[in-house]
Measured scan of single mutants.
Amino acid sequence: TRVETATETAWISLVTALHLVLGLSAVLGLLLLRWQFPAHYRRLRHALW
Rank of each mutant, 00 (worst) to 15 (best):
T5E: 00
H46Y: 07
H46V: 07
W35T: 15
W11G: 02
W49E: 00
L28I: 05
A26T: 13
L33T: 04
T5D: 00
L18N: 01
T5Y: 04
L32C: 04
A47V: 08
H40G: 14
L32R: 04
Y41I: 09
R45D: 03
R45V: 07
R2W: 09
T1I: 12
E4Y: 11
R34W: 02
F37V: 07
Q36H: 15
L14Y: 03
T5S: 01
V3F: 08
A26W: 04
Y41F: 13
Y41N: 02
W11L: 10
S25T: 12
L20W: 07
Q36L: 09
H19W: 05
L24P: 05
T9E: 08
T5L: 08
T16I: 12
L18I: 07
W11A: 01
A26M: 15
R43K: 11
H46C: 14
G29A: 13
L22N: 02
L31F: 11
H46Q: 10
S13C: 13
H19P: 00
L48C: 12
H40R: 10
A17G: 12
Y41A: 15
T16M: 07
L30E: 00
S13L: 10
E8C: 05
T9D: 09
L22C: 11
A6C: 15
T7L: 10
W35F: 15
L24D: 02
A6S: 11
I12T: 14
L48H: 00
H40K: 13
L18C: 07
L22S: 09
T1E: 09
L30I: 12
H46L: 09
R2Q: 14
Q36M: 15
R34K: 15
Q36Y: 15
S25A: 12
R43F: 07
H46E: 11
R45A: 07
T7G: 11
T9A: 14
L20Y: 01
F37Q: 05
W11R: 04
A10P: 14
A17E: 00
T9Y: 13
W11D: 01
W49I: 03
V21C: 10
V15G: 02
H40L: 07
L44P: 03
T16N: 04
R45Q: 06
L44H: 05
R2D: 13
A10F: 02
A26D: 00
